[in-house]
């Protein structure tokens, strides 16, 4: 069968959602951010909430998220996205408000804001991208960096006696009364992308049911920071990150 007979509008099964703009993403090749942006856009399209969604972008690589998703955005000071999202959601309770934060933003400088926003049970969605490194600034150690992991600031590997232990922030947040849905997902293969998409959709639905904060961690890769090519980085993540950051729902009520 000729390819031109297959490529017809009536045979279309998958195309880029229009909520994702045509701008070329500035992320490195193979970066997990792109996949997560795409599935958030697809969820917004499926739920038909483009006009009602407000995102809060962090400081980090994803600071430019507003260039890619065709919804309303605000950009918060470093780590303060949950505080800004709290204000937006309280002033406009009918909107779907989500923050999009990396591990350098959420788990380091923003620890106070995320803990208290989750403890207050603000009806927001938090998307937390954990790639165990500071990507934008050049691959320095983050609180989530694994023991033994080589980064720009731990050239001989992270040592517990010098650098402390990696922070499992999602497990901490699952303890808080204000959260209703806490889960850890990944996006390295088609099955995991579909699962992560379902988790994000559930989180958005929760935020409108006033059940509390929904927290979705996505374990991702940072090829440039890890200095591993994209496909091998996905394998490295499966072998090294998943034993320490196990996937699955931690809380669902």
């Amino acid at each position: 069968m000729d390819i031109n007979e297959i490529i017809k509008p009536e045979n279309l099964v998958y195309k880029k959602t229009p909520i994702l703009k045509d701008n070329i993403l500035h992320y490195c090749p193979g970066c997990s951010h792109g996949v997560v942006h795409k599935i958030i856009a697809e969820v917004i399209e499926e739920m038909n909430i483009q006009e009602k969604t407000i995102g809060v972008s962090p400081v980090g690589c994803s600071v430019f998220a507003y260039n890619y998703l065709d919804i309303d955005w605000q950009q918060a000071a470093h780590g303060r996205a949950p505080a800004l999202a709290t204000a937006i959601k309280r002033l406009m309770p009918e909107k779907y408000v989500f923050t999009y934060q990396g591990d350098g933003d959420l788990a380091s400088i923003g620890t106070a804001e995320i803990m208290h926003a989750c403890n207050r049970g603000e009806n927001i969605v938090v998307i937390f991208i954990n790639n165990a490194i500071y990507g934008m600034t050049g691959g320095q150690m983050a609180p989530t960096t694994l023991l033994g992991q080589v980064t720009a600031t731990t050239p001989y590997g992270r040592k517990a006696e010098l650098n402390g232990y990696p922070l499992k922030i999602t497990e901490l947040i699952a303890q808080l009364e204000g959260t209703c849905y806490v889960t850890r997902q990944s996006v390295q293969n088609p099955a995991s992308v579909r699962k992560a998409k379902k988790a994000i959709r559930k989180a958005f639905e929760n935020s409108q049911m006033h059940k509390g904060t929904s927290f979705v961690e996505i374990v991702g890769t940072c090829n440039s920071g890890w200095k591993i090519p994209p496909v091998q980085a996905n394998k490295w993540m499966e072998e090294n990150m998943f034993p320490f950051y196990p996937l699955g729902d931690m809380k669902d009520r």
């Binding site: 390819i3 880029k16 993403l25």
Partner: peptide, 30 residues
């Protein structure tokens, strides 16, 4: 690109994992 176009079943796996959303998939039943 499609190196072996005859193999394609239109499963959408490639498009699902693509970080830059560059792949559009078409499928027919024959």
């Amino acid at each position: 690109h499609m190196a072996n176009p005859d193999n394609c079943t239109g499963c959408t796996n490639c498009a699902t994992v693509c970080p830059d959303a560059v792949i559009t998939v078409y499928r027919v039943k024959i």
